[in-house]
Design a binder for these strands. Structure first.
Lengths: 124, 124
DNA sequence: TTCATCTACAACCATTTGGTTGTACGTTAG
DNA sequence: CTAACGTACAACCAAATGGTTGTAGATGAA
């Protein structure tokens, strides 16, 4: 359950893998059901080798794994990797909320009048 | 509420901007309080120009904006951009959950109806 | 076996990235 | 005014990216 040690390098690879339209689309397709690399490649206007490289990038980022089935290689998504990316974004937002909170503290030096929240509410 | 039209290109820029340790660190620093580019540059073992370029990448991704104060340029974070990235990840997770749900459906059904579509018509 | 399919990977190429240095310009402090 | 500071931007470079083609190895089908 412990999301094992998110290093800088792993986050670099994660976000880099997500930073390409084709790769995000591959993820969307595979997240709905495993596909072989060949089947995937049929969907894009590029060579099989190019799609293969994209899958490799996703794989090194931990976003997918491959599993042999006969002569095919099925691409399986790893939802936990998405969770790791989200965790990094959450951390940023937490910092931001922290700042807002500190600012509120400064604005309301007297704890008794510390009704907080100057309009910067939450999204979700 | 409506997060204005997330295009492929904007997501590319967003995730690309996040795919670098230095840039994520810049975000963390700026999210806690605005800093000038010079002050930021003091924190990293690289030239001022390099940091300037990183800030430009963050800016084109919509993650920060710059605001002049005298001769300084303050870097301000834009939390909504982080929210856009999160939305993209949420969408992926939703697809994944959807698959699980469909799989449960299939398991509850007659096995003979469980056919896979060989060529889902998609084009470009 | 023979043949078609799926995958792996090398070699190559153009473009982008991430860094550097150098120069120029606006602004603030003395 | 002059000097120092903060910024902008160009030119350059090595390395990584994203694509190509070609070749070769496994595997399944006939």
């Amino acid at each position: 359950m412990v999301v094992d040690e998110v290093t800088d390098g792993s986050l670099d690879r994660l976000f880099h893998a997500l930073a390409d339209t084709t790769r995000r689309d591959i993820l969307r397709r595979c997240v709905q059901g495993e596909l072989s690399v060949s089947r995937l490649a049929e969907a894009y206007p590029m060579s099989f080798a190019a799609v293969q490289k994209h899958v490799t990038v996703l794989e090194r980022a931990g976003l997918v794994t491959k599993q042999r089935r006969g002569r095919e290689q099925l691409v399986l998504t790893e939802p936990e990797a998405v969770a790791r990316a989200r965790q990094a974004l959450d951390e940023l937002e937490a910092l931001w909320r922290g700042r807002v909170e500190r600012m509120s503290h400064l604005l309301a030096q007297d704890p008794r009048t510390a009704d907080h929240d100057p309009q910067e509410g939450q999204d979700r």
